[in-house]
Simulated assay, not measured.
Amino acid sequence: MSATAQATAAHPQARLLIPTQVSGPPAPWGQVQHRLGGDTMGTSWSVQLWAGADLPEAPLRRAIQAVLDDVIAQMSTWEPDALISRFNRLPPGGSLVLPDSFALVIDTALRVASRSQGAFDPTVGAAVGHWGFGPAQLAAGLTDTTRPVGWTQLGWVPATRRLTQPGGLRLDLSAIAKGHAVDRVSAVLRDSGLPHHLVDIGGELSGQGLKPSGQPWWVDLEMPDPACPLPPTRVALHGLAVATSGDYRRWRLGAQGQRLSHTLDPRTGAPVAHAVASVTVLHPSAMWADAWATALMVLGPVEGLALAEAEDLPAIWIERPTPAQAGWRETLSPALRALLA
Rank of each mutant, 00 (worst) to 15 (best):
V188Q: 07
S44T: 14
Q256N: 14
Q21W: 09
D121T: 08
D290S: 07
Q21S: 14
T123V: 09
P12N: 11
P148F: 08
Q117W: 01
A308R: 13
P314R: 11
A127N: 10
T160G: 07
C228P: 03
V112L: 01
P231H: 02
A113C: 08
P321F: 11
V124N: 12
V185F: 01
P56T: 08
G125H: 06
V128H: 05
E330K: 09
E311R: 14
Q21D: 14
P266M: 10
S76V: 06
L339T: 07
L313I: 11
A10L: 08
T145D: 14
L138E: 14
P28K: 10
L313W: 07
S261Q: 05
A82R: 02
G93A: 09
S46W: 00
L173V: 07
P19R: 11
A126L: 01
L230F: 10
A243N: 05
Q215I: 00
P321V: 11
T43N: 08
P122W: 04
V47R: 13
P59R: 01
R62G: 00
A127R: 11
A341V: 15
E57K: 02
G42R: 11
A181T: 06
D144C: 11
A295Q: 03
I72Y: 14
G257K: 08
A286N: 08
A127F: 07
L17R: 10
A53Q: 14
G179Y: 02
S114F: 08
D183C: 01
A140R: 15
H274Y: 00
H197C: 00
R252S: 10
D70M: 09
A335I: 10
W288F: 09
D100L: 12
A10P: 06
R250S: 13
M287S: 04
W217I: 01
V112R: 02
W29I: 14
E222N: 06
A177F: 01
T268P: 02
D191Y: 00
Y248E: 05
Y248K: 06
K211W: 00
T20L: 15
P166C: 09
D265E: 03
A243S: 15
W50R: 05
D312R: 15
V276T: 15
T145Q: 13
P12T: 12
E204A: 06
V199D: 02
G42D: 10
A310N: 05
L194T: 04
L169Y: 05
T8A: 15
S114G: 12
Q137N: 14
T108R: 10
V272K: 01
H196M: 04
D220I: 09
L154C: 13
T143Q: 15
P135A: 12
Q31W: 15
W218Y: 07
T152E: 15
A159Y: 04
L253H: 12
A236S: 13
A14E: 07
G304R: 11
Q6W: 10
D121H: 02
Q117M: 07
V185S: 03
A255K: 09
G30M: 08
G94N: 06
A136G: 12
L17M: 12
G214R: 09
V219E: 01
L253A: 13
G134C: 05
G300V: 04
P92C: 07
V32W: 01
A126T: 09
A227R: 13
V281F: 02
I201D: 04
P231V: 07
P91L: 07
D100S: 09
L138A: 13
G193T: 05
V124W: 04
L305Y: 10
